[in-house]
Design a protein around this nucleic acid. Structure first.
Lengths: 233, 233
DNA sequence: ACCTGAACACCGTTCAAGT
DNA sequence: ACCTGAACACCGTTCAAGT
């Protein structure tokens, strides 16, 4: 009876690259990217760290593979990376794609840091950007404007918000009056902005920010600007 | 004669927090941020790793301190963080500030990764964003629009280009014809764009990109969009 | 072919000890 | 007060060995 009801229910599922990558992603979701060490990932699979090296070159290869998996999730949500030839409404289509990518990234909040540290362009990401480029070209962009647009979008094309931090005070509701007075002399504009915003919307706590609203404001600023330059050029 | 001409020319310069931070920055500039370990930084100062802990809480404190030094460099180049009350030409002033910050970041190419990993907002950065906010408010922004603008600028306000990678092919001049043909079938829009751009400018190598031009295109897209919304609102 | 255990060269950090 | 050496609990990775 010891063998059938052991700690490992599945006696021996064969280790594969895919299974390792999914285990690493689950681990990162649960405990953060810092928990993703070769030893910990192996442990989650009931195996020794060194066994992973039969399916991966090294840790960089693990991280590269994770990125490919994430791009796969975006592709699945979109039903494939498709550029419809002759379709001209580039702006709503691009907006939808970027917001879809953003949903995937929000499921894996550690993803930006992993993607940003890749030294070689992951093939899946090349295909993603090819789709974005294709939609702009079909939408009437010149090659030159499309090129600028790719640079201007940057990592925002994947739904990254690219914000450094929410200013300290905005994360804490109800800063004390004493602290507020102290800040007032040093940061008059910041304090003025935060109190104006909280007055305008009595439901909002002081300085509370809606990430989704702010992301959409930023992306529309860029997409509107590109449309204006397309019409002008 | 042995003591005066030893390996250490300065017999004993006292260790200070500032000296440690500058040594860490110099090391990062020379060998990359990965070289910045407590042991290596100490080594550069002719001291044991554990001595650093008398001037720093831990490695996070070292990285926080490095960020403060970098912001200090921006402040020096700008001659201080100043908001001139009543000055309305916000756009050229903000443009100048951001391009100045960018020059500092280009001197320390590892800086974005360090700044992005800070968990608490460095005080110097709060003052930097207070200046940016002040310039917008004095320039006629509503508090609401200024708030959106801060989010939309994000890390670009510090001169970060926020690009994921230059597409692989654009970093290599003169991809072989065979490779080009292979890419053509998979990435028609990318290949089309790159050849159009290289034709337009015969001096440019295939897909060569001017980082500064692209950064300025992107930042002007955002600043122009903000001005349009300011005038409309 | 696939997995393992011991080992190597690193990390950040603690602690007791030196001056 | 300031610095040190040994040690601890981790890393990624290599290598020779097991089945």
């Amino acid at each position: 009876m010891a063998t059938s009801t052991d700690t490992e229910p599945q006696p021996r599922l064969p280790l594969t690259r895919r299974r390792i990558l999914r285990a690493a992603i689950d681990l990162a979701d649960a405990e953060g990217i810092a928990a993703v060490t070769m030893r910990r990932v192996a442990g989650e699979l009931g195996v020794e760290a060194m066994s992973l090296y039969h399916h991966l070159d090294n840790k960089e290869d693990l991280l590269d593979g994770i990125v490919e998996e994430l791009i796969g999730e975006i592709e699945t949500e979109l039903g494939g990376f498709r550029v419809d030839v002759g379709v001209e409404d580039w702006q709503p289509r691009l907006r939808h794609i970027i917001l879809t990518a953003r949903r995937v990234m929000l499921r894996h909040r550690w993803a930006p840091s992993v993607i940003e540290t890749r030294t070689k362009m992951p093939p899946g990401l090349v295909r993603y950007f090819e789709m974005i480029l294709g939609i702009m070209i079909e939408g009437g962009f010149s090659n030159d404007l499309a090129h600028h647009a790719m640079h201007a979008l940057g990592s925002r094309a994947l739904g990254f918000s690219q914000e450094l931090f929410v200013p300290a005070s905005t994360t804490e509701k109800a800063a004390s009056d004493a602290m507020f007075a102290a800040m007032m002399s040093e940061l008059p504009y910041m304090v003025g902005m935060l109190s104006a915003i909280s007055h305008d919307d009595p439901d909002s706590t002081l300085g509370w920010c809606d990430d989704q609203t702010e992301f959409e404001f930023g992306i529309d600023l860029i997409l509107d600007g590109l449309e204006a330059r397309r019409l002008a050029g």
